[in-house]
């Protein structure tokens, strides 16, 4: 690998009690094939553990996966925890089964992507390249 080259480092995790790991694993593989380094945390994480890991690992981005309809809570906790550990400049993207009605809330929180089933892998990969290239301002969310 070339000297001085920047590498995108992605932390992938599933927070809470959600066994559906296939999507996260497929994404891990897709990110790897796109030349990224994937720090794979797998299932049954807490939002705080994901956030602290991202800070310790100097992650370029956090990718959250959830299939229980709880993304709004998971994302909020993760964003809050990032603030606590001094990593609020780390962008957060999400995917899985996300209720449509939660999308505006997540966008407002600064959590982007919010992909559902059937999204081409390329779309997600390109989104990561976009969010890691810019300083990502995360909005304050009431409540």
């Amino acid at each position: 690998m070339a000297v001085g080259q920047k590498t995108i480092r992605v932390v992938i995790g599933k927070v809470g009690c959600d066994i559906h790991e296939r999507g996260a694993l497929i994404l891990a593989r897709a990110f790897r094939d796109a030349g990224m380094e994937v720090i794979y945390l797998g299932r049954y994480q807490t939002a705080e553990a994901v956030a602290k890991t991202a800070v310790d690992e100097d992650a370029s981005v956090i990718a959250l996966s959830d299939h229980t309809g709880s993304m709004r809570y998971i994302a909020k906790e993760t964003v809050d925890a990032l603030k606590k550990f001094g990593g609020s400049d780390i962008p957060v993207i999400a995917g899985g089964l996300i209720p449509k009605k939660d999308l505006p809330y997540l966008e407002k929180l600064g959590v982007t992507g919010n992909y559902g089933p059937g999204t081409p892998l390329e779309t997600v990969v390109n989104h990561i390249r976009e969010v890691t290239e810019i300083d990502w301002p995360k909005g304050e969310v009431p409540g």
């Binding site: 590498t7 994937v38 720090i39 994480q45």
Partner: peptide, 17 residues
């Protein structure tokens, strides 16, 4: 591709906090 899946931490979650 130069990419990697770094999975060692999965065995170390008890120390993550």
């Amino acid at each position: 591709t130069g990419g990697a899946v770094l999975g060692d931490r999965v065995r170390m979650t008890e120390h993550s906090m």
